[in-house]
Amino acid sequence: MPTTALRVVEREARVFRRLWRGTVFSAFVTPVLFLAALGLGLGGLVDEGGGLVAGLPYLVFVTPGLLAATAMQTAAGDALWPVMLGTKWARTFHAMVATPLRPSDVYTGLMAWTALRITLSATVFLIVGAALGGVPSAWGVLAVPAAVLCGTAFFAPLAAYSATQHTEVSFPLIMRLGVMPLFLFSGTFFPVEQLPGWARPVALASPLWHGVELARSATTGTFDGSGAVGHVLVLVAVLTLGWYAGTRTWARRLAG
């Protein structure tokens, strides 16, 4: 990454230092509450019923699911309204490109900042999950890079799209009709095998499913070579295509 993009990361960090209090809840507390309610509360019920979910105690099943799904939510949140803020409402990205920074530096820098924040929140989440007993394998540390890859695979195409928008009307739709269903149905809370047959291919096409599966093989220490490589390849492909589109849409938006 060029040093010019790192200056964007530095700016985001400075903004964060002033405003972090507002984001602590959604980044750290909410996911842990979900983990407690689902993993312990619901999980207790599931496990009492005598069933393992995909061969795992429910807490172990749901911890990596929540980890990857939260990464997706963080990335989607960063890729929509903040982009409108910087390009239109406050125009702070226009101020950046009047300096040696280029539009691709702004885009790449913002993505790096999102990756950094996911690293932080995923680490905290993983520690809490491990303390509760949801991370049986030491390979679980690899769930953090899996979450980061999953998050950036969402950030890249979504931010590429939002740079083409001049109003935010489509953003709530993307969250409600795109991000939310993926959150629920990508093998996060239950195996995709539970879905009706027609819906299964949709779930398997979702980058989140690949992120969840990757994180789950890490936390459970059950990598089967080709599966994990496949998930990584899909996520890297989405990230690369998104980034390719993004460098173009951002150049058009900020340097027209």
Binding site: R14, R18, L19, A90, H94, A95, M96, P100
Partner: peptide, 20 residues
Amino acid sequence: TLDTELTVSDNLAIYGRYFG
């Protein structure tokens, strides 16, 4: 195109860093 959430001196500092 100022960072309105930040302070006056933060705005100068951030901009200075864009120039390295």
